[in-house]
Nucleic acid binder design. Sequence first.
DNA 1: AACTCGGACAACCGCATTGTT
DNA 2: AAACAATGCGGTTGTCCGAGT
Length: 501
Amino acid sequence: MGPKDKISSPSIDECVSGGSMGGGTPLKKGPWTSAEDSLLVDYVQKHGEGNWNAVQKYSGLSRCGKSCRLRWANHLRPNLKKGAFTPEEEQKIIELHSQMGNKWARMAAHLPGRTDNEIKNYWNTRIKRRLRAGLPLYPSDMCLHPYNENQPGLNASDDFNYDDNHSNELLHGNSFNFPGHMFDGMKVSQGLISYASPLMGFSPGNAIGRQGFGSQNYNFLNPTMNCTKQLQESETLFPHVQDGIASRIPQVEPLSVSDRIPLKVHQPFGFPCDSDPCNKDLAPYGGAVNGSHAHTLLNGNFSAPRPITGSVELELPSLQYPDTDLGSWSASHAPPDPIDTYVQSPSGTMSLQSDVESPRKSGLLEALIYEAQMLGNEKNNLSEKSSSSSVFTPCEAVESAAANICEADYELFHDPISQHTAPISENPFGAAASVESSSQLAPPDPSSWRPDFLLDSSWHVGNTNYHSMFSNTIESLLNADLSAEQKQSPVGPSSKFPKVD
DNA sequence: AACTCGGACAACCGCATTGTT
DNA sequence: AAACAATGCGGTTGTCCGAGT
């Protein structure tokens, strides 16, 4: 570990400002040695935890207080569990993350002996693994944590706050529950954008998440986040869109709350319709943006739906969950395999790369664009060869795209590693089967169905670059899906899927 | 055997929050 | 109230190691 064994530069090390450089002793960085550990343990035994900046003074350690605290908290303090997470712990992490998002410290509080860093590392690794495999993150039977649409004081830091205040609010009415499997059919399509549920409004702002894949942590949206704030953020990223993005896009008639809450309707996509508590928050912005994917795409964090056991149920904030609650919930809802039995979930709603401010940050957006360009080229070639693609209706296009997604899902379901165990009825390619239930809702204007209605010319709003970018991307993807499907299946999307026994 | 890749892990960094003076 | 320090937190990076090729 030579390279990291270095002496920190006092000028850049924040620890310096913590006062540990008073004596002029350069602070060591990099891995800790056992000798240093001993010194730190001795210090804590003598002086207790805290006052970390005094460690250097009293123990002779050439480490900044911050580093000491971290070392102690993550490695030296007693009662730390070492070793791999148990399946139970993994399950709990998943559950907690579905409720809290990337609140590692809070999650750690629910996992005695585990550190936030451990959990974070585990999660990030898992995210990477699952995304690489195109798998969703959460079990299908998690649905959104209750959300209080009337929470007045949410602010930017209230990503998902379990403050007492909010706890109270959560306990009192206006808490929504979301139907399970509401994200069924959504697909983390190899890093491509997700397709909006046909019944869901899909605003440009939604499509432009805050972090998305830009972060290594794949910070998905937390649906409980104040949607106004989310919208504001997205609008911040798109200043030209500030004059009401929601009003500029085709609107889906908002369902009444009573209509929406218990609804679980599979879309032609296989997306169950969900209620979206964010809608009301978006009202000031010119209209409702329906659909879970609105909030899924809005900001960086992400939470999964939680199981619904009734049309509406009130739930405690996670910190008020007794472990037994979680455990029972887990036992009754979670698939046996904490990791590998996930079916489609909100994670499938891949937020479109959102690093508008620094599009180069992750490179994923570029990759997406590049792929889109390639697909576009391919599309052009294909369109020259086959004129039939031009007769596709928008709905067909969507359906086809969905079918393509589902096809990928089918592959995932047959992934010998993932070993999905979800019932077929929950699988994402219940698209055809879901037509029946989808008929319960009058289909909105097909133009609203189209995920690519982002291409609507009304959404220029001055930002032609991004409009063009997204338009090309989405269009290319959709058309590529069409083309691919046409090549593969002359008889229709659904026929592509082998029967699942 | 050499190489690549991905997972696991440790540690750092920067910012936010909280406490103290 | 303001400034500063201490602490906490989340994101990111770097390294090691084992598996696969």
